[in-house]
Amino acid sequence: MKGTERILQAFRRVYLSRQAPEPSPYWQANVMREINRLAYEEETPWWDTLFWRLVPVLATILVFLSVAAIKTPLLPQELSSGLFQDPLMVSFISIFGV
């Protein structure tokens, strides 16, 4: 074990001489951004967070349903005409309708 102790002694010198690098310029700002995000999440009620997470999902579903409805002859004649025939307009109405 004497040889191992000598190796450990050599390792100790290298180990203790390790220097900490300077953080990159945006490091602190990145940490604070995450801290602020966590603080905001702590303050916001769960149902509020859930609602805003569901909004894009609901909007997407509505867009798909609307486009599918236009492409099928199941809708009444008056709905399959005019504005509702343009998929872009349907998307717009669905998203802002929500």
Partner: peptide, 22 residues
């Protein structure tokens, strides 16, 4: 940073320091 510099490769210090402060 000085604590982590002893235990980690230099390229991972910032990332783990970030996690530590969080």
């Amino acid at each position: 940073f000085s604590i982590l510099a002893k235990h980690l490769p230099p390229q991972n210090i910032e990332e783990i320091a970030h996690e530590t402060f969080v």
